[in-house]
């Protein structure tokens, strides 16, 4: 469904991604593990068309999308929920969600139905729908960010460190919601440092270090791997 081949990305002279190749099949939940600065966000930004690649291809549903505009990539079904959430803090929760459906603005009815499903997934967003997004707690803002991404009708959802800075209980809620979204058929690529929690809901995972994929495997293989346990789980 989504297949990256030899992605290379530079910031000036610095090579942030080095020939990254990976794939995600329909309905899979794939976790990207990596420490600070490994290149997870750069990878997602490159997929979304916000960073220019020096080399490589991105094929989505058998189509090359690596040189497409960000708006075309969203419209084609790859939606990115970024690190740091990037909400519109002065706008209401409802307006943030509706802007998530910007590329589907001609289908207002479809978006109205979808926003109800988002409120079903995160009931508290319904209570807060008229509050400015910036006034919500971190966990609530993360839910707005995920909800906004869902409004873009993703076939592939890129989630960049959704648990960052959240309390353990909230992390569990957020990961449960992600699992639920995935269970309804959406392919998910989830970048996390929180390896143990993320691997619990993963089908497969890749480990990225200094812009390179250094390991890949299914959940059990990675959970049992000594080096992973030492580097990311601390057990």
């Amino acid at each position: 469904m989504l297949r990256l081949d030899g992605l290379t990305l530079h910031y000036g002279q610095f090579r942030a991604l080095d020939r990254v190749s990976l794939h995600a099949g329909p309905g899979e939940l794939v976790v990207m593990l990596g420490a600070n600065g490994a290149g997870k966000s750069s990878l997602f930004l490159a997929i979304s068309g916000l960073r220019k690649l020096s080399a490589g291809s991105i094929r989505f549903n058998e189509r090359e999308v690596a040189r497409d505009k960000p708006s075309d990539i969203v419209a084609s079904g790859i939606v990115h929920c970024p690190e740091g959430r990037k909400l519109f803090p002065g706008m209401s929760v409802a307006k943030n969600l509706m802007l998530g459906a910007y590329v589907h603005r001609r289908d207002r009815r479809g978006s109205d139905a979808l926003i109800d499903r988002v409120f079903g997934l995160f009931p508290m967003l319904h209570d807060k729908r008229n509050d400015p997004a910036g006034s919500l707690s971190g966990g609530q803002q993360q839910m707005v960010a995920i909800g906004r991404a869902l409004m873009g009708r993703p076939q592939v959802l890129l989630l960049d460190e959704p648990s960052l800075g959240l309390a353990p209980l909230v992390v569990r809620q957020v990961l449960a919601a992600i699992k639920a979204i995935n269970a309804e058929g959406t392919t998910v690529l989830l970048a996390e440092q929180n390896a143990y929690a993320a691997l619990q809901i993963a089908d497969r995972a890749y480990v990225i270090e200094s812009g390179r994929i250094v390991m890949e495997g299914d959940r059990q293989t990675l959970l049992n791997d000594e080096s992973i346990r030492r580097a990311y789980i601390g057990a």
């Binding site: 979304s48 916000l50 909400l87 519109f88 802007l99 603005r105």
Partner: peptide, 23 residues
């Protein structure tokens, strides 16, 4: 208007706006 909110969205978060597909 939708077009008006794209202007405000871009003022409030440029990258967020790009990620929802605002040109």
């Amino acid at each position: 208007t939708v077009m008006g909110s794209t202007i405000i969205a871009m003022a409030q978060d440029r990258e967020g706006a790009a990620l929802v597909g605002i040109d």
